[in-house]
Amino acid sequence: MKIYRLSFLILAALSLGCSKDDAEYIENPQFDLRVPANFSEPPEFPDNPLTTAGVALGEKLFFDSKLSGDNNISCATCHKPELAFSEGSALSTKGISGKPLLRHVPTLINLAWSQNGFFWDGGSKNLESQAFAPLAHEDEMFQDLQELEEELKAELEYIELFENAFNSEIKINLVMKALAQYQRSLIFADSKYDKYIRNENDVELNQQELRGYSVYLDNCAQCHQSDLFTDDNYHNNGLDATFLNFSNDEMFLGRYRVTRNPDDIGKYKTPTLRNVAITAPYMHDGRFNSLKEVLDFYNSGVQESETLDPLLIQNNKIGIELNADDQEALLAFLNTLTDSKYL
């Protein structure tokens, strides 16, 4: 059987030709991600390759409060650079309605490597689609998308920036692409740990930190996998024993809301441990205020349920038991994971 494809854009395509694309490519060079030596190559994004102009535009948009309905809230209101792009409260009330959001604001760290869904439950497939959610949500930025196009078009600078980045007039989907590019450019890989691992400038971890590193390797690394310090996967780490709150489209059931697989009840995406020393509070609902509380939880607070990750049952005991010295050492190690590049 023969298959033909019929495009209605023939004339447009012919008249634009392809030379213009080539020219654009030269004017708008690829953005150099400078992949750290201890990281793998990030996946490619053929539909939205990183360019210098795209990243620059995305950065401007990320910090621009015009992106909200009342022109008071930007992405950075909830994703603050000085907190590794997290927000600092358990459940943010920084959105337009002032109502507490239903989940804790996560960091935005090394997202170019994140391939298995965004949000704590993976409800969004990629950064390009994800950005629509905070923009449109009534408790977040509540922006009329059509109006946003008009607002941006009223600014000469944006007209030029979109032209440079996408060779196009301003369109809402390009706003998403630029935001995605900027977020993928945020690489955190210059902590004390990284320098030690890469043998840079003779940086060493001290005895305490090295002991903590080995405690980490023995107890945490399967999920908080180095060197991204996340396995980009979903686990139930035992925060709750029961999952009986079905409100809000069953969002309190974790990953199950997305997959409808009962094995996924109570599972959430493993957050990275990078910069964790400065990103309290912790967990998908921000329930713990300090790393000490987190370690106490892993030590003695882990709740049993059908989907509890088997890694959290050791020698028939639930949780990760660590003595006080090991806990101290682990905390010291976690403190070596802070990269202050954007802070």
């Binding site: 409800g123 497939k125 689609s129 959610a133 949500h137 989907n173 998403m176 997305v258």
Partner: peptide, 27 residues
């Protein structure tokens, strides 16, 4: 469906046929 930023035909985020205002699915 998995990438709202791709444009084709009449696909649009502006006509209420997306789940973008519903926080946890963007499609």
């Amino acid at each position: 469906n998995d990438n709202l930023s791709l444009q084709a035909g009449e696909l649009s985020q502006l006509n209420g046929m997306t789940n973008i205002s519903w926080m946890w699915h963007t499609s």
